[in-house]
Design a protein around this nucleic acid. Sequence first.
DNA 1: GTCAAATAGTTTGATAATCAAACGATATCG
DNA 2: CGATATCGTTTGATTATCAAACTATTTGAC
Lengths: 151, 151
Amino acid sequence: MDPKINEINGYLVSIFNDVLMIEERTLQTSQFKDVSIKEMHTIDAIGMYQEHTTSEVAKKLGITVGTLTVSVNNLVRKGYVNRVRSEKDRRVVKLALTKKGRLLYRLHDKFHRDMVRETLTEMSEEEAEVLMKGLLNLHSFLERTKEQLPE
Amino acid sequence: MDPKINEINGYLVSIFNDVLMIEERTLQTSQFKDVSIKEMHTIDAIGMYQEHTTSEVAKKLGITVGTLTVSVNNLVRKGYVNRVRSEKDRRVVKLALTKKGRLLYRLHDKFHRDMVRETLTEMSEEEAEVLMKGLLNLHSFLERTKEQLPE
DNA sequence: GTCAAATAGTTTGATAATCAAACGATATCG
DNA sequence: CGATATCGTTTGATTATCAAACTATTTGAC
């Protein structure tokens, strides 16, 4: 059993590092050189489809609201994000992507989808099911672990 | 096909974020509060078993040698890493873990192994095989992508 | 209705992570 | 020997991050 654990663990670590590195390089050699990988993930968390408040996005990213405010300042300056004060509650700020932000969002999303699509080539339906089940297991374990975490 | 792609993609993103967050929190509530997650990965890249040069470790981590030098300065100060000038070639620096560094390495390794072990519970041998194959596919795709990357 | 407390977000000061480029020390090769 | 290459360090600038102080607004208790 142990060799299998090591092998899977090795793949996960390697996949993790590769994805980050490829995303970073892809960005730096695209028309979006002025966006870091962290900023890319912020854009991803803001999302295309609904407006999200600063607090919601910060929680999703697992960073403090202060950190997000600073990052959003830069993304607004660079033209990727719009800030809109809520009319209902003037304390609340809603974040939304600009046209340029949405273009970048789709590009990044495509990278992810291509990555997965490529992985599934040469796998049968059933094998894909099992892969999904494995990932689901891992995901459940991590969610449980997160809950048990101190504070 | 597309819903499956979205689902798998979602799991992967979520898994990556969770692993990082859990590692970070686990460190901060352990006896190793003075080590950041980035430093943890540097310790991991230095490894237990052989001596590695600064250039080798930087390449493995995908960061510049300058960045690693700064990080190693801190890890030496905190007592996790030793720097040894090579006798053969006085330009070369070999990095190695101290006793405290090796203890932390094993703790981190255990977290990863437990994570994978937990994922494999309730999976049959064959299912584990298929999961591994899926991860191997993904890994191969990423390695190929990395090679095709500009510069 | 007013005022205290809670909430949402911003600002600030400090520290870590990062890169590119300049630099210093050493090795190699013609 | 001397030019060039290599290895690592240092430096200056930028980004990422947090905690804590702060501002503006809402809510809730009386």
